[in-house]
C-alpha cells in the first residue's frame, strides 16, 4: 500500500516537473522568436533607409509609391525595374515599357531587401555587363504587362 502511494506521488511529481519544464521551454522559444522578429524588422528598416539615401529623388518617389524603381543600364541604356524583394526581382523592359524578361543576381550573404536592391541598382548603373554576366535570366512572366 505504502509503495503504491509512493509510486503515485512520484508519478505526480514527475508529471508536474515535466509540465513546468515544458512551459519554461515554450516561454524561452516564444521570447527568442520575438527578439529575432524585432531584429529582422530593425535590419530591414536600416537597409531601406540606406537605400532611400542613395536613390535619386525620382527613384525614391517611385519606390515609395509603387515599391519599385527604374534604373538605366550603364552599358546598353536598357531600362530595368527593380521591385522590392531579394529574388528574381529585376525586370528588363523594352523601349515601349513592355516586360522582356527577369534577371536575378544578389550580393552574396543573407542580406535584406533594401541592401539587395541597392547593390542591384549600383551594379546595373555602373557595371551592367558585369552584373548580368553572373545573373540568371528567366523568361517566365505572369502575363503581358505594360508599365
Amino acid at each position: 500500500m505504502t509503495q503504491q502511494i509512493i509510486l503515485a506521488l512520484s508519478s505526480f511529481i514527475l508529471a508536474l516537473l515535466g509540465t513546468v519544464l515544458l512551459s519554461a521551454l515554450s516561454l524561452v522559444v516564444a521570447r527568442s522568436g520575438s527578439c529575432s522578429k524585432s531584429f529582422r524588422f530593425e535590419t530591414e528598416a536600416r537597409a531601406l533607409s540606406l537605400l532611400k539615401g542613395w536613390l535619386s529623388p525620382k527613384q525614391r518617389a517611385c519606390y515609395e509609391r509603387f515599391r519599385y524603381f527604374d534604373v538605366i543600364g550603364s552599358d546598353t541604356g536598357t531600362r530595368y525595374r527593380i521591385h522590392h524583394g531579394t529574388q528574381t526581382n529585376i525586370e528588363e523592359l523594352n523601349c515601349t515599357g513592355h516586360h522582356v524578361c527577369k534577371w536575378c543576381f544578389v550580393p552574396d550573404g543573407d542580406l535584406v531587401a533594401g541592401d539587395v536592391m541597392l547593390a542591384q541598382k549600383i551594379a546595373l548603373e555602373t557595371n551592367e555587363r558585369g552584373a548580368l554576366a553572373v545573373a540568371h535570366r528567366s523568361f517566365v512572366s505572369s502575363g503581358p504587362r505594360r508599365f
Binding site: 529574388q87 528574381t88 543576381f105 550580393p107
Partner: peptide, 10 residues
Amino acid sequence: TLFYPRLVGG
C-alpha cells in the same frame, strides 16, 4: 563609401 559583397546569380 559603401561596400557590398560580391554578386552572385540568384
